[in-house]
Structures are given as C-alpha cells and as structure tokens.
Design a protein around this nucleic acid. Structure first.
Lengths: 144, 144
DNA sequence: GATGACCGTCAGGTTCGTTGACTTCTCGAG
DNA sequence: CTCGAGAAGTCAACGAACCTGACGGTCATC
C-alpha cells in the first residue's frame, strides 16, 4: 500500500508547484501563463536565441511537445522564430522585448516559489529532495 | 533557473515510477494495465468493497476521475458494482475473483518497484524523499 | 551527387485529471 | 410527514502535458 502513493505524491507535488508558479505570475500581472511556458522562457538564451531541438533537449521532452509551447508563446508575442543563418533547416527561437520582460518576472516568480518550498521543507530536507530526484532520474535514464 | 526543474523532475519521476510498475505487471502476465488502475485495485477493501466516493477520496481525485478507472476495470472483469444495501444512492465496488488475483500481483509489483527505488536511493534518502513529499503536500492542502 | 542523419512540422493518441450539470436518493428539521 | 439541503453516482466536455509516426526540406559526407 505504501508505494503507489509515492508515484501519486510525485504527480500531486508537481501539480502543486506548477499551480503556485502560475498564481505567482498572475499576481505579478501575467495571467494565463502556464508553468511550461514560463519554463520555456527561462530556457531561451537571451543573446543569441535557441533552437527548438535544443530547447526540447534542455526540458527533457520531445521537439513536438516543445513546438506547441513555442507556438503559444509566439502567438502571444513573447517569442519569435527567425531562420538560423548557419543552418537552413533550423530556426532560432528568440525572446521579443516583451518576452525579456516576462523572463525577468518569471525568474522572480520561480525564486519566490522556491523560497517558499524551501521554507516549508527546511533547507536540509529541500536539498535532500533535490538530491533524491536527481539520483532517481539519473539512474532511470541509464536503465532506459 | 534551479526551480522550474524541480517541478519537471517531480513529473518525470512520477512517469518513471508509473512506467516501471506497468512493466513489472506486464512481466508478470498482466499487460495493458495502467498504474492508476493498479492503484485502484489496491484501494478496494477486499472484504466489503468500497464506495466510489471513498475510493476517490483515498486517491485524492474527483469521483468523476475515479469513475473512469472503475469503468475500465469493470469492463475487464476485475471489479463489479453492486448496490449498497445501506444507502440507495450508493454502489459498492467489489473485486471479482480475477480482481483479487490481480490485487495480489499488484502488491508484489508495487513491492518490487519500491525495493528497487529504495536500493538506488539508499534507505535514508528514500525515507527523506517520502517525508519531504508528505510535508509538501500536507502544507499545500492546508493553504488551499 | 546520392545517402543518411537532422530540423522543424503536421496529424493523431495517451494518461491523468478537471468543471459543470444533472438524476436519484437520504436524512434531518420544521 | 413532507420537504428541502445535500450527497452518490453519472454524462459530457475539456485541459495540460506529454508521446509516436510520418513527412519535406537541408546538411554533410562519402
């Protein structure tokens, strides 16, 4: 009975943190922004922009999944796709001015959520949690 | 940059564990059984059966969500709904004979996954992980 | 200059969950 | 005793975050 809860708890915790981040962004005046979108904004290189495939790699998802998020952010004007001068196949995802502003806000929101989490958990437990997850995922992907 | 990873890691870990459980069940001869279904089987009281709403409460989801899982398991003959003699509104979800067999297998599969996780993490880290998640979810639902 | 790998894209699925709107039934207060 | 609040199960629609598979251009290399 003990274990199926672990899986569920992980999912529940994920949802809880995502919801907190969304709330945080809302309070800062960026409504209807999902956690996955915020996360993407933070992953785009501010100078040179970043290719879709690279973004997918960083986030650990497929390029198809990442594309959806880029599409959404592009429609809302936070990001735009420009052709990659070095590679005709590729496009570079860049932040617009608005996107950069959003990025700064996201960093603050993320920091706030992290701080809150750390506080409710205590520094040692928080570090332990991250360590455990790192280890779990690392050995998981070796197995795969 | 550190935090959005936490949320993702939680989700990834959830997926990894769920996948492991499904694989474990497959190897034991129960294919096409999802983690949520296994989890439900383990939550049905073996003697008297359990009401849908109670199952939903235990799993921490809505009754609508739980109904879908019960439907699936009922179609496959692991579970059946019987009217509750004590309450005309309610139905009691009971395991069939096949369902009980599956339940035993699920318990073993869950134990196997848990053991493996514990081994890769080490006992202390494993306990720490569970403790951290408990704490996180507990204070989360107080806030809500 | 053909061949295989790679980039972004389109199309369709999957898993796990949600909200809202009933119908049917229970139960306690007037 | 009835009658209204509310709970149990259900139907329908939807959402978020993913996935696999297939495809048309582009590169890089042999």
């Amino acid at each position: 009975m003990t274990e199926p809860q672990l899986g569920r708890q992980l999912l529940a915790a994920h949802r809880a943190l995502a919801a907190e981040l969304v709330l945080e962004l809302e309070e800062r005046g960026w409504p209807e922004l999902r956690a996955s979108q915020a996360s993407l904004v933070l992953n785009v290189d501010r100078r040179s922009g970043t290719r879709l495939t690279e973004l997918a790699r960083r986030a650990g998802v497929t390029k198809q999944a990442m594309m959806v998020v880029v599409d959404e952010l592009e429609v809302r004007g936070f990001v735009r796709r420009t052709p990659d001068p070095d590679d005709g196949r590729a496009k570079v995802v860049r932040l617009t001015a608005r996107g950069r502003t959003l990025g700064a806000e996201c960093r603050r929101a993320v920091a706030a959520v992290e701080a809150r989490t750390r506080r409710t958990l205590g520094g040692r437990r928080y570090e332990g949690l991250r360590e455990a997850l790192d280890l779990l995922l690392e050995t998981e992907e070796e197995t795969a």
